[in-house]
Amino acid sequence: MDIPYTVEVRRDTGLNNGKIGIWLFLASEVMLFGALFASYILIRTGSPSWPRGDTLLDVPLATFNTIVLITSSVTMVMAWASLMRRKFGTFRIYMGATILLGFVFLIVKYFEYSHHFAIGEGPSHNNFLAIYFTLTGLHMLHVFGGMVVNAYFWGPGAKLYQTNPVWFTNRVEHSGLFWHFVDLVWIFLFPTLYLL
């Protein structure tokens, strides 16, 4: 007996299992980053002085990274739209672009990190850098996780398209939801850490 509603939607909820699963997962992610944001606010308001982000961090690089991540969100949603139009070739191009842009983001982040370590500003330097490394580090792990899943759907996972295109499109949509969420977190991280 196969598990129902993996592909088709259940009539009364109007959803398939994967869609509910990914949204529940994102709900827990909201609480994860929410706790870190709350900690950030608490530590910042409790400290006598707090550095402006741009005195310690590289705003142009981060602005570039913001643009990279937003662009990757668009390519992600375009990858899904290509599948909806049943254009597998276009899907591969957009999905490939999404993964590459994620990669660019990580490389830029690597340069930012290594610069900080080179001048001895590690996470233990002060609480601003502590929360900076924790938040961006956790966010980078999410970017990496999203890239792994996307790479799977770009490569070996794409076999499913041949046998069940609807299911494959759904799975890409769900992986996209996660990717957009990662983008969304960055949209909040960028001003809070770099600009304020």
Binding site: A35, S124, A130, T134
Partner: peptide, 15 residues
């Protein structure tokens, strides 16, 4: 919180 405590212990932060 666990991640932050881990940072406190391993990376020497002061959350």
């Amino acid at each position: 919180a666990g991640v932050m405590q881990l940072m406190d212990r391993v990376a020497g932060t002061s959350f």
